[in-house]
Nucleic acid binder design. Sequence first.
DNA 1: AAGTACGAAATCGTATACGATCACTTTCAC
DNA 2: GTGAAAGTGATCGTATACGATTTCGTACTT
Lengths: 224, 224
Amino acid sequence: MTEAVAELAAAPGSKSEQAYQAVKARIIEGTYTPGYRLVLGSIAKDLGFSVVPVREAIRRLEAEGLVTFERNVGATVAGIDPTEYLYTMQTLSIVEGAATALSAPLIDSVAIARARAVNEEMRECLDHFDPVRFTRLNQDFHSVLFEHCPNPHILDLVHRGWNRLAALRSSTFRFVPGRAHDSVDEHEALLKLIETGADADSIEKAARLHRSATLDAYLAQAKH
Amino acid sequence: MTEAVAELAAAPGSKSEQAYQAVKARIIEGTYTPGYRLVLGSIAKDLGFSVVPVREAIRRLEAEGLVTFERNVGATVAGIDPTEYLYTMQTLSIVEGAATALSAPLIDSVAIARARAVNEEMRECLDHFDPVRFTRLNQDFHSVLFEHCPNPHILDLVHRGWNRLAALRSSTFRFVPGRAHDSVDEHEALLKLIETGADADSIEKAARLHRSATLDAYLAQAKH
DNA sequence: AAGTACGAAATCGTATACGATCACTTTCAC
DNA sequence: GTGAAAGTGATCGTATACGATTTCGTACTT
């Protein structure tokens, strides 16, 4: 009996946790677009519970940069200021670079093979023009690389950056086929570096450039 | 009248903010040592307000890694697992390295002079053995370097790392005079690199090593 | 007609209250 | 005497209620 109770209690988690997950999902999938006003009372009514847990969830999302919050005014889904985008991408390039360099010595041939398979799938997505799948596979690719990252703090920073990007990307910044093609090639080059046991500096630099190049492509596109 | 009211309202901020600042200060200054049990009701009674804002403050501190929180059990000041310390220092070395490299081109001679003055004060602290002042000046030194950092996200990561370290340092990890002496020299070397307009890579590497060396010194000390 | 001042509605911020969960102690059976 | 099980106390989790602040619309004045 205790098992069932424990399972039941663990599955939904606390309501503040539920609210957090629910609102976060809606932001990331684009239901709540940037600028959307998050009214505590309305969300609470929608989810079926009170404002206190919702408030806590919103504050957590604020800490992660997904929403902005102003006292006595309320919360809105974080905007997509190009400057903010630049900050996020720059930070990601740094933490991803570090994460890749730290993980590289711990990645075995099996993981390399898996990453390569994912990358080939991404290449196929280019032919069929499937940006949504491409984006998901891109995360998978890097997840394989990072899954043995020895520093969980750095991994956490990577994930935060991804979340933020997911929220931004779903609205404004769009898929750039030319860039995507380069991206797949860079993935392959990165795998080769890791396979051959290149020094940490080279790997870090390559991983950084990979992200920076994506930033540059988006910025170039944004000018048009 | 509106002025006075606004001032009065702005100074203390919201109660959740007050609670956050108060508890955070107590953790950093060492009043609440790692393992200390943070009971919502007690803290609320101490600070003179209700549990809801206190709860919010605790959750914020949890997000920053200063306290751990368990459902239906409560919060305790985060422990000082050497592994956790290593993670934090490693992450700091990366984000500080990046912050320094990004800031370097924007640091003018006035700021350099200020940083150098702070560093000389630190040198004096070594003679008089004043670890507390030394630690504060150390933060000042790096603050001068970072004050024009073009990426606020990275700066935020640096500050989070500092907070966490402050909480840890006040309890277990102690001042190592030998290391402190090296640290001052490294500061001076870093200033010279920035003055001479060294390339970003060199500056980043130097800043990273500065932090890594501190980590090594602490670890070596911890073995005894 | 434009700007300002007032007021009402909406929303946030916090206190209080009650229910749920967990740790600990005590008791009972073996 | 040792083990488990039930009961008790403490603490967290959330709902509800009320006060504080802001915003927006409207009417009034110039």
